[in-house]
Design a protein around this nucleic acid. Sequence first.
DNA 1: AGTCAAACCTGGGCGC
DNA 2: TGCGCCCAGGTTTGAC
Length: 290
Amino acid sequence: MPELPEVETIKLGLKQYLVGHVIEKVDVKLQRIVQGNTEDIIHTRVVDVRRFGKGLVIDLQNGYSLGIHIKLTGQLIYVDKKNSTKPIKVIRNTFSTLPNKWTHVIFYLDKGAVLYYNDFRQFGWIKIIKTDELQKLVFFKELGPEFPLKNSTQTQNVLTFDDFQNIVKNSKTVIKPLLLDQKKISGLGNIYINDGLFLAKIDPRRKANTLTQEEIKTLFESLETVLGKGLTYGGASELSFVNALGEEGHYQDHMLVYGKAGSPCPTCGKPIDKIMLGGRGTYFCPNCQK
DNA sequence: AGTCAAACCTGGGCGC
DNA sequence: TGCGCCCAGGTTTGAC
């Protein structure tokens, strides 16, 4: 689902296409998605797009920002005259032109461009707030340091290996739910954690504080590898993810174990197992991951 | 601090 | 064919 590589991909696109545009009008079709007053963001220019973990921030010239979380199925798609008639992936095999029944917010921009917020499951949110008050939002306030993402624009509050080692060593919890906890480490999600643990040959059920120094090092590097691969492939689009132009990524064609219950392990050929951990589907090879 | 569960949603996939 | 049920997952909240 949208994790660090996916949200970074959206951020890069929005930064390229959205910055410089003036928001002329906002049409909120599903009120639940938006909090704050849309009057505060019209007739003002987009000056920057930032990412914090899996959260996005669109900064405006008048001192306001949009804090955005796309959760599982949110899409932010920039459309101008060049790509306005293209069918966009909605979910799995469903495609539709824009706007469609899953379009909940429409930002009309100058020069005839439009930014659509679509969200099949309606879990995402857009919060209109003064830029200097973003840290008051629970999500941003409690976000832990970011797992490093190679070749990304991430600059601040990046987790070092020493930080990672300390977090893992000092945690009594099970390793997989620990990695999912955005308050401890931000940016990782279910897909890349499953694949990272597989690559590191570590059983997702292990208690964090039983990992050896060597295993922690391998895990750190494995997670870096799979996240980097995710970014290289433009994200994972098995569900609803598309980039800022509505294009799909391709990491789903390169997943190691995620979603592959019963399929042969890429290393040993024995079937991939699926269990629930922390309420989340967890895929691993019981033979390779110790 | 940890663990767990429910809630937020909808459409796909399943069993019957 | 169609109904009912479960599932997917990133937070968020609340309970123990």
